[in-house]
Design a protein around this nucleic acid. Sequence first.
DNA 1: CATTTTCATTGGATCGATTCAAATTTTGCT
DNA 2: AGCAAAATTTGAATCGATCCAATGAAAATG
Lengths: 359, 359
Amino acid sequence: MPSPIEGQARPIRLADIAKAAGVSHGTASNVFSRPEVVRQEVRERVKAVAEAMGYAGPDPKGRLLRAGKVNAIGVGTTEPLSYFFEDPFARVMMAGISEACDATGAGIALVSAANQEKLAWNIQSALVDGFILFCIEGGSRLVDLTRERKLPFVALELGFHDETISAIGVDNIAGGRLAARHLAELGHRRFAVLSLTLGEVRTGFVTPEMVRSAVYTGTRDRLAGYFEELSRFGVDTTKIPIFETENEENSTRAGLEAIFAGGERPTAILAMSDRMALIAIEWLTARGLKVPQDVSIVGFDGVPDGALCDPPLTTIAQPITEIGRRAAHMILDFDGTVRRETMGVELVVRASTGPAPKT
Amino acid sequence: MPSPIEGQARPIRLADIAKAAGVSHGTASNVFSRPEVVRQEVRERVKAVAEAMGYAGPDPKGRLLRAGKVNAIGVGTTEPLSYFFEDPFARVMMAGISEACDATGAGIALVSAANQEKLAWNIQSALVDGFILFCIEGGSRLVDLTRERKLPFVALELGFHDETISAIGVDNIAGGRLAARHLAELGHRRFAVLSLTLGEVRTGFVTPEMVRSAVYTGTRDRLAGYFEELSRFGVDTTKIPIFETENEENSTRAGLEAIFAGGERPTAILAMSDRMALIAIEWLTARGLKVPQDVSIVGFDGVPDGALCDPPLTTIAQPITEIGRRAAHMILDFDGTVRRETMGVELVVRASTGPAPKT
DNA sequence: CATTTTCATTGGATCGATTCAAATTTTGCT
DNA sequence: AGCAAAATTTGAATCGATCCAATGAAAATG
């Protein structure tokens, strides 16, 4: 007798149905994929046989090989998979990607890996038509791996000097300037920067030397924007402490400790991500420093959380959803060309910035 | 002439490499998938040829057919894809699923569709080893479609009388009782219920008749839990208004309008989801009613947002992450058996509930 | 030197479908 | 009935790999 759990006796194939129904593979195939070309009587007979034999329908694995197209786009990162559901920036981006995929009926495959080997394998074996890459830390390795697949792909953040790959990002220099100008106009003259990674993952204060050799041009550009603008206001930018974090709690806190340990405390913090800015607000508040009365903070990204925290965060907003949408369309409507798009950013003034304290 | 963008001249196959390198396709295959069995000299030659010809590596499409296993689990819903990144409940669940997938190196494929036909096609053609189904509205159709695939699948929420499908859910009756007892003990006697869907999607007040014929036993059980417990406190449950919503803003607001339009206003609201509870808090506050001084609210789910809102939400917490983890493992370690797991729930008292107002 | 082991390589079979030119059957018309 | 046109059906080829039994070559053993 068949075992209680059906399915371990090798699954039924289309060929089995064809034989049982006394038709050719071709006809059997047509019954499922182009029913209109087969005579009704035959169609019904084949369907009945399929039903009776417990056929699961044409196996997508087989179809795929023939058809060539998966109809899914892969989204890759070196972070764990939960990043997609927990990080506010990633979530908004994914919402944009989802929108485009929903509209065309494409699926989304999330690809990630804790360790390097698995990452390689996962990228190499992902069943997708193209990739969208979240280039955070480890981004260049991710890009190299993906390039191997010879599938279309887009890097989010144009943080690469490599002009041969498609990418969508924002005007980081303009964003940096906007943030800096806002603070300078409020009278601030003593600053500190919470920076994203410049190259290899590390943590700590950054020297001008390191800035020059930065791998991530995105980080470098934001910094350049900050400094260009501050120079105009007569600020000596060489004195500004820059602390590189891993854009998470521990290293950001460490950075704040280090920055506020010095004698000349800043009255304004330029954070390269809302995430860090939010952590900074919390840290400062817990330390008894008022935001913005004692210290002003400007973030970068424009994630929804920034509007909800206390005080609401002044930030440089990226059109995150739109970037996601466009990235997805680049893959979905891939035409073989390399595209590099730079989106504009916007200063959103909320309550985390105020006039410099008079001292 | 070859176009400027490489790749449209039919991609290179393993067989091409084999021929060019003068080895059999068997050996060529081994070079990539079991390099240790081929002599170093040969291995290097083949790799060099592959490199020179711009071979992208063994195509997963081909490998898949042979190997049979995709190494990815599909997560299905009838909501749009963005649901996974925006809904707080779904996000926590996905985090649990992600954790399990990360640990085993599996990928996640998100499957959804706006319209019915696409849903069918997407489920039918998803390249996955099994499915986890978010059974919100339209759940039964989703289950039927998935069953056709004859792949392992798990329904989240045991909201189905059908005992032949694997499912993980919570003890809804116990949850209902916990919520009701908490409020009753605070002295409340006038209640209203914001309910999830009972069957077909609709909105409006619910009759006892409809409750009896509910398709979603999850909804029915929560209701049963509420009422059983309230009866013990001498509350006439037949007088309690039950408003069925679509678990989103508009219908929940409509429900509140309807409930508070009546003469006898409730002093306590039993919401079957934190989402509705949160909307209710906002609605009441905007109306000048104080939570919990005028109206107490208990949610259901235990999403993180509930702890952050004002006032923080008292709720029945499900072990959401754990449910996600287990669901993923059911697919990943599928052993052919049907499993139905019921998880416990917990009353989390925060500030949205307080003593009944003395009238 | 003959014989057994070990190591590499080969090439055919297979995974499960779709496609398409050719063959066959039906239908339509005179 | 006779014949062209239309509608169905067939079966071989293809998609791109992996697997494995058989074969051949080289190394180890008696």
